[in-house]
């Protein structure tokens, strides 16, 4: 009985402590699972615009001229010719690609997807460093939660009956999936 009491206490306290992070990982998990269908981290937008002909503008002045026609006074990170037919200007979170000499401009802007970006930073361990260790501790916590969860309820609703069936099913589902995938 003393062991079961310890198990319950462990399960309860670890469960409380990691509840928030579990929600973070779960939401981010669903978000990144569907990365083929959407960008879970960034919102990327493209807008086209005609700047007018840039014929005759000397290459050294192209960047300046394009920014002036766009009415942008931000200092670019870089402005480079990508080829004879394309000039690119890199601004903060924004890239202007201009066709030469016609002046067709594609304005690509990128911003963090609110809420999801930050959850994904934690879930995908982009922070690295100390967060790696904390994530390891969290994984250990989940392991303890799973193992203690099995033994919380005694009797027919526990491992003696319903619990045992659910536990076996929990093994069978991924095992069958693996078999079907690998065969």
């Amino acid at each position: 009985m003393k062991i079961r009491r310890t198990i319950i206490v462990l399960h309860r306290d670890i469960g409380y402590f990691f509840a928030a992070l579990t929600v973070v990982y779960a939401i981010s998990g669903i978000a990144v699972n569907h990365v083929d269908d959407w960008n879970p981290n960034y919102i990327v937008t493209h807008q086209s615009r005609e700047l007018g002909s840039l014929e005759g503008v000397v290459p050294e002045k192209l960047g300046e001229e394009i920014l002036a026609r766009m009415g942008i006074d931000e200092r670019p990170k870089a402005a480079v010719p990508m080829s004879e037919k394309e000039f690119r200007i890199f601004l903060k979170d924004r890239t202007l690609s201009v066709s030469l000499p016609g002046g067709h401009l594609v304005d690509e802007q990128i911003r963090r997807r609110p809420f999801f970006f930050h959850l994904n930073v934690l879930h995908l361990n982009h922070a690295k460093g100390l967060w790696t260790w904390y994530a390891d501790i969290y994984a250990l916590g989940l392991l303890i939660l799973a193992l203690t969860g099995i033994f919380i309820i005694p009797g027919k609703k526990g491992l003696g009956g319903r619990g045992r069936i659910l536990l076996i099913l929990g093994f069978v589902v991924p095992a069958v999936f693996l078999l079907l995938t690998l065969l």
Partner: peptide, 11 residues
Amino acid sequence: IVFPPTSIGHN
């Protein structure tokens, strides 16, 4: 390795 898109335009 994950390169953030904000690195575009940097050396």
